[in-house]
C-alpha cells in the first residue's frame, strides 16, 4: 500500500510527539474536572430523591436533567464528541432521531385510544 502514502499523510501523528504530549497533558486536567463533576452530579441526583417535589413529573424532570448533564460530560469529553468528525455526528443523529420516533410514537399510540362511544354501545361479543 506504499502508493497510498501521499493520501494518508494527514492521518494521526506519531505517538510520543512532544507538542502532542502537551496537548494530552492539558486533556488530563479536563478529565479530572469531569470526574469530579460526575461524582458531584451523582450525589446531587441521590439528594434529589429525598427532596419532596410536589409532582412526580417534576421529580422525573430534575432527575433526567442531572442525568443528561452527566451523560453530556461523558459523551463530550471522555468520548471526544466535542471534536469528532461529521460522519460520527450524522450516524448518532440518525440513531437519536429514530430512537425518539420509537419512543414518542409508541407512547402516543398507547394514549391515543378510540373515544367514540359507538364502539362501546354497539359492540356485541
Amino acid at each position: 500500500m506504499s502508493d497510498h502514502s501521499s493520501i494518508d499523510s494527514s492521518g494521526h501523528e506519531a505517538p510520543g510527539n512532544d507538542s502532542h504530549a502537551q496537548d494530552i497533558a492539558g486533556h488530563i486536567n479536563t478529565y479530572m474536572w469531569i470526574f469530579g463533576s460526575l461524582l458531584v452530579g451523582t450525589v446531587l441526583t441521590v439528594l434529589m430523591y429525598y427532596v419532596d417535589f410536589s409532582s412526580m413529573a417534576m421529580t422525573v424532570a430534575v432527575a433526567l436533567f442531572i442525568a443528561s448533564i452527566k451523560a453530556f460530560l461523558v459523551a463530550a469529553y471522555f468520548m471526544h464528541l466535542m471534536s469528532e468528525k461529521k460522519l460520527v455526528y450524522s450516524v448518532l443523529l440518525l440513531a437519536a432521531f429514530f430512537f425518539t420516533g420509537l419512543m414518542g410514537l409508541t407512547l402516543w399510540g398507547s394514549f391515543d385510544l378510540p373515544t367514540n362511544s359507538i364502539h362501546k354501545t354497539s359492540y356485541v361479543p
Partner: peptide, 21 residues
C-alpha cells in the same frame, strides 16, 4: 420506513389521530 410501522396495527384499537399520522 422507520415511521410507518403502525399501519400494521390499525385494528388494535388505535385512536384516529395516530392512525392518521
Amino acid at each position: 420506513s422507520f415511521i410507518v410501522w403502525a399501519h400494521h396495527m390499525y385494528l388494535t384499537g388505535m385512536g384516529t389521530k395516530i392512525a392518521t399520522f
